[in-house]
Design a protein around this nucleic acid. Structure first.
Lengths: 107, 107
DNA sequence: GATGTGTATGAATATATAGTTATATAGTGT
DNA sequence: ACACTATATAACTATATATTCATACACATC
């Protein structure tokens, strides 16, 4: 029932890898409140324009964000909102880890 | 309230990166049903012994797995079970993506 | 203490990819 | 058509890291 195929495993790993870059996570967090065009993302993220474009291309081709063209601008938006659920769970997990580590060094 | 600091962001990204390697994911999935020693993991994962040890060291130092020594053997076990929740959500997200992509190419 | 087994670690290699620079492409306005 | 702006892409560099090989370390047994 829970037999995980190698292919599934690689798909899941790849999805995690996509989420595993700080800059991509920052770009995604910027899109949390709504769509943004590239130049906005550039300005708010501090990344270079080419870099933002590449990250967004990756995220788009993997269905995490969607794109909408409006004249010269391309607006990106979150397509898969489960990513924020993932982030929340990770945050909880991390704070638990910190607590556990804290116990290893009691005052 | 939801202002994410750069540091938090990097922590979360790092946790995702840890999950973002197929071999690590395989090792974790092997531990799902209970603890295992290194040689068992080597045998069932197909990875080299050194490689398994290194992956487990990483996972241990980040609180994802725990270790227990018993004579010559070192038994690893899942310390943070939220990782499987993450995997489940990712699996759901991926199948949704596939469905969405399916709609892009209707028959 | 010598030998053997299980695990960890250091060095070296290969590969993937984040970031940058320069340039191409697409769309807008004159 | 030309100039201008927004985005994408190609080539390149630098860096990180997964993997392997060899070896060290820890522990058990004889």
């Amino acid at each position: 029932m829970e037999k995980i195929t190698e292919k599934t495993l690689e798909h899941v790993a790849y999805r995690f890898k996509l989420m595993g870059e700080p800059m991509r996570l920052r770009l995604l967090s910027l899109l949390k409140d709504g769509e943004m065009c590239v130049q906005d993302l550039v300005q708010k993220s501090g990344a270079g324009q080419a870099n933002v474009s590449k990250h967004m291309a990756l995220l788009t081709s993997n269905g995490i964000v969607g794109r909408r063209k409006d004249g010269l601008h391309v607006y990106y938006y979150i397509a898969d909102h489960t990513i924020f659920t993932l982030c929340d769970i990770v945050c909880d997990g991390i704070s638990n880890s910190v607590e556990t580590m804290g116990k290893a060094f009691p005052k």
